[in-house]
Design a binder for these strands. Structure first.
Ligand SMILES: [Mn+2]
Ligand SMILES: [Mn+2]
Ligand SMILES: [Zn+2]
Ligand SMILES: [Zn+2]
Lengths: 151, 151
DNA sequence: ATGAATATTGTGTATTATTCTCAATAAGCT
DNA sequence: AGCTTATTGAGAATAATACACAATATTCAT
């Protein structure tokens, strides 16, 4: 399950003049051991780390999670909730997408390698370095279709 | 270019017990006449409306834009900037996706009807009512690849 | 057309996610 | 072991968005 070892992370960080810290290693490990389908907000992460006996400040969490997203290690998910969620960025056979109810935020994951291919081809064509590629489907779930009014 | 007439909007609103207001009509018109490739934040919208002589309060703008996204009239775009952008939600031949540089936010639009099909099929299969379907490619643009350090 | 019922607006205020500041600490390198 | 400087944690600052509520305007039934 572990794709990134601590050493691989260290190598990538050092290459850019950055450093491997215990905090970064702990956060990477947490994400790697997270069951698929879990999407953590910064707060979620903070709580989970506290519980597991590795408290890390919220500031550091925000910084780390942003850093790792920009390295392509984590995916930044913006559902309709007003805050970001993160999950590990898995390659091909595990790579997946999200179908979300904009009313209750119910989320369903699904796979599609043709989308992944389109993403890779498009970014290559434009000379971009691909980090993440996610199809986001905004929809209304069966339950919320039945509920009558606003919101 | 105008897909939604004011009357069509009124019908959809009334059907749910809501009302057509001048503000809603004006905002819809603005989006319909916006050239492709323009993505407006709430603030952008507020300024544009002011300039065109139709000032509308920021509260109403936030409410309207959220409402229209939930009706499937507007798409809610979350790039990497910390605030949402909106654009009109066009059907098939105009429907498109976004490739975004996470460092400088440079955005490139591209089309793909196979993705649109996957989105429709997936939401149908799960019994969801489809509102919007967007492939979001996070990447680093050629310029930012060259720029050395963090951020 | 008129009026009652109530959805919507605008103003101001509250909330909340995320970033910033800065002194203290510690990773990486020689 | 020591130097350089990236990183951390605590708290303050920022900025996007939501909320509260009185005033207004839309809808619908007379
Ligand atoms: Mn997921
Ligand atoms: Mn667009
Ligand atoms: Zn739902
Ligand atoms: Zn860029």
């Amino acid at each position: 399950m572990a794709i990134y070892t601590a050493n691989a992370l260290k190598a990538e960080l050092n290459e850019r003049g950055w450093r491997l810290t215990p905090q970064r290693e702990i956060i990477l490990n947490l994400f790697q051991n997270l069951p698929e389908g879990n999407h953590l907000s910064a707060e979620d992460l903070c709580n989970k780390l506290q519980e597991q006996g590795d408290p890390i400040s919220l500031s550091t969490i925000y910084r780390t999670v942003k850093l790792m997203a920009r390295m392509g290690i984590l995916r930044e998910l913006e559902f309709a909730e007003g805050h970001k969620h993160y999950e590990i960025n898995q390659p091909y056979p595990y790579h997946h997408h999200h179908l979300i109810c904009v009313k209750c935020n119910k989320t369903i994951e699904f796979k599609s390698d043709s989308i992944l291919k389109i993403g890779a081809k498009t970014s290559e064509k434009e000379g971009f370095h691909l980090l993440d590629c996610q199809l986001l489907i905004h929809a209304i779930c069966p339950t919320c279709q039945r509920s009558l009014f606003p919101n």
